[in-house]
Amino acid sequence: MPSVLFFSTLTILAGASVAVQQVLNASLRAALNSAAWSGFVSYFVGVTCMARCSRLPCAIPSLLWP
């Protein structure tokens, strides 16, 4: 069973990822000179990653829910 330390670390990493995402979005907006394109690219990459990760358990049977 996961410990409190595991969940505390996971929470800290999740919070840090929000700050990193904001910096990456700002950099992408500056590089593309468009907030609309920045939002589209960010959303498209996120959806693509989620779609690929959702197929991961099919490729690796040990990741299937028991």
Rank of each mutant, 00 (worst) to 15 (best):
F6W: 13
C53F: 13
V4I: 13
L64T: 11
S17Q: 06
M50E: 04
L28W: 00
P2I: 10
L32I: 02
G46D: 07
V41H: 00
T48G: 08
L32F: 05
V18W: 01
V45E: 01
A51E: 05
A59S: 12
L13S: 12
N33H: 15
A35K: 13
S8W: 04
L56R: 03
P66S: 12
P2G: 08
L28A: 00
F7E: 02
I12E: 05
S3P: 02
W65C: 10
S3V: 09
P57Y: 08
W65F: 09
C53P: 03
W37S: 15
S38H: 02
A14I: 04
L13A: 15
P66I: 10
F44L: 14
S42C: 08
V47W: 12
S17H: 01
S62W: 13
G15F: 10
V45I: 14
A36K: 11
W37T: 12
R52N: 09
V20E: 07
F7T: 14
A19D: 01
N33M: 06
F44A: 15
R52K: 12
A30L: 06
P61F: 10
R52C: 15
T9V: 08
G46H: 07
V45A: 14
F44T: 14
P66E: 12
G15T: 02
V23E: 01
A31M: 10
F6S: 04
A26Y: 02
L32P: 01
W65N: 10
A35D: 15
M1K: 12
S54R: 05
A35S: 15
M1L: 12
V45F: 11
P61V: 08
S54F: 02
S27I: 00
L10V: 05
T48R: 06
R55G: 05
I12Q: 01
G39N: 11
V20G: 07
S38Y: 01
W65K: 08
L5C: 09
R55K: 05
A14T: 04
R52G: 12
V18S: 01
F40Q: 11
Q21Y: 03
T9K: 03
L10Q: 07
G15A: 13
S27Y: 04
P61D: 14
